[in-house]
C-alpha cells in the first residue's frame, strides 16, 4: 500500500458522550442530544453551533433496533443543524470509527471546515433473541447464518481456533474481562462501572441477605467459571466475555487545522487513519487474526509515521474478550499468541 497523506490537517477540538446503559423511554435522539450538549461545553473557546457545516453519524442498525431508518437527518434536526447535510455510516461495529474517518476525509478534501461526527446506538428496546438476530445481520445471511452462527458465535469460533493454535484457555479470555471491568470503573459513564470482584461480592452479599446458599468462589476466575453466575453465550464466550446490550451516543467536533486554535489552544491533530474490509470468516486464510485490522493499522501507522512501539495508549475493539486479544496482536502491540 502506498504511503498516503491527508490533503490538509484535521483537528479534534470537542468531545461529548452520553451515559451508557439500558435506558427504557429514551430514544437515540435523546442520547445524541445529551452527547452533543456535552460536546459543546468541552470546546475551550466556544462555538456557535450554527457554524457546523455537516454531520457524519455512525450507527449500525437503528432500522432493526428501533424501526427507524434515515436516522442522520433526525440527529441534525434534533441538534438544531437541519438542513445541513447529514449522512449515516453503517459498517457494523466499526460504524462510528468509519464516521470519524469520513469526517476527517470531508475536511481534508477542503469541502468543509467544521464537521460534527456522531456515534449512536439504542439496542435495549428489543428482546435478547431479536438483538442476537440484529447483530447477526452483520454477517452473511445466506451462507453463515444458516449454520447457526451468532455474532458472539463468530468470535467464539475464533476463540476455539486461537485456543487450538496457541494453547489459550477460557480463563485466558476471562482475564481480559476482569481488566476491562476494572477500566470501566474509571469512567463514570460506563454501563456497569463495577469490577468483577465487586459484582461477585454483591452476589455473595445478596445470597447472605436472602438466606440462600452462599457461593464459595475463591476469586474472580472461579466466579467467572460458574455457569450460573456467568452463563455461556457461545462457548468459550460467556456473559462477562461479551459487551452488553447498550444504549449510548457520542459526539466529536472536527475542524480544519487552519482554524483549530480559534476553538482551543490545545487541539488534538489527527495524524493517521486506516480502514480495510474483510471476507466471511470461513473464507479467511487464518482464523486467529483479522486481516482488515492489520491492514487498517498499517495504513494508519504509515500515514502518521509511527510504529506500534511508539503507541502509549490504545482503545482496541473489545466486543468480545477474544476480539481484544486478536486486535492487540493485529495492531502490532503483541506477537501472535
Amino acid at each position: 500500500m502506498s504511503k498516503k497523506k491527508l490533503s490538509r490537517g484535521v483537528a479534534l477540538v470537542g468531545a461529548g458522550m452520553s451515559k451508557f446503559g439500558a435506558f427504557p423511554g429514551l430514544a437515540t435522539r435523546d442520547l445524541f442530544v445529551e452527547a452533543f450538549q456535552e460536546m459543546l461545553t468541552t470546546i475551550d473557546k466556544g462555538i456557535d453551533p450554527k457554524d457546523i457545516e455537516a454531520l457524519y453519524i455512525g450507527n449500525y442498525s437503528s432500522d432493526l433496533f428501533e424501526h427507524q431508518g434515515h436516522t442522520a437527518p433526525i440527529m441534525a434536526d434534533w441538534t438544531g443543524l437541519a438542513p445541513r447535510p447529514a449522512t449515516r455510516i453503517e459498517d457494523a461495529c466499526a460504524s462510528s470509527g468509519v464516521a470519524l474517518r469520513q469526517g476527517i476525509i470531508a475536511i481534508a478534501s477542503g469541502l468543509y471546515d467544521i464537521v460534527l461526527v456522531g456515534g449512536i446506538e439504542k439496542m435495549s428496546d428489543l428482546p435478547t433473541a431479536e438483538v442476537t438476530d440484529t447483530l447477526a445481520t452483520a454477517s452473511d445471511m445466506l451462507y453463515e447464518i444458516p449454520a447457526g452462527f451468532t455474532f458472539p458465535g463468530f468470535y467464539a469460533a475464533m476463540g476455539t481456533a486461537y485456543m487450538h493454535q496457541y494453547g489459550a484457555t477460557p480463563e485466558s479470555f476471562m482475564h481480559v474481562g476482569i481488566k476491562n471491568h476494572n477500566n470501566g470503573t474509571l469512567n463514570e459513564k460506563a454501563q456497569f462501572g463495577a469490577t468483577i470482584r465487586k459484582i461477585m461480592d454483591g452476589k455473595i452479599a445478596k445470597a447472605e441477605a436472602k438466606g440462600y446458599p452462599v457461593p464459595d468462589w475463591a476469586d474472580e476466575v472461579e466466579f467467572l467459571q460458574d455457569n450460573r453466575a456467568n452463563p455461556i453465550i457461545a462457548w468459550p464466550m460467556r456473559l462477562f466475555d461479551c459487551s452488553p446490550i447498550s444504549d449510548g451516543a457520542a459526539a466529536l467536533l472536527l475542524v480544519s487545522e487552519e482554524i483549530a486554535t480559534q476553538f482551543t489552544d490545545t487541539p488534538l491533530y489527527i495524524i493517521g487513519s486506516g480502514q480495510a474490509s474483510d471476507v466471511a470468516l470461513h473464507d479467511r486464510e487464518v482464523l486467529t487474526s483479522i486481516k482488515a485490522a492489520r491492514l487498517a493499522g498499517q495504513e494508519a501507522y504509515e500515514m502518521a509515521g509511527v510504529t506500534p512501539a511508539d503507541i502509549q495508549g490504545a482503545e482496541a475493539h473489545d466486543c468480545f474478550t477474544i476480539a481484544e486479544i486478536i486486535a492487540t496482536e493485529d495492531l502490532g502491540f503483541f506477537a501472535p499468541g
Binding site: G148, F149, P152, T160, P236
Partner: peptide, 18 residues
C-alpha cells in the same frame, strides 16, 4: 477448523428447537 457451542440462539434456531 473452528467451532462454538451456541446457548443464546437466534430466532431461526429457536424455531428449530434450539
Amino acid at each position: 477448523a473452528a467451532f462454538t457451542v451456541v446457548h443464546i440462539a437466534p430466532t431461526a434456531m429457536i424455531e428449530a428447537g434450539y
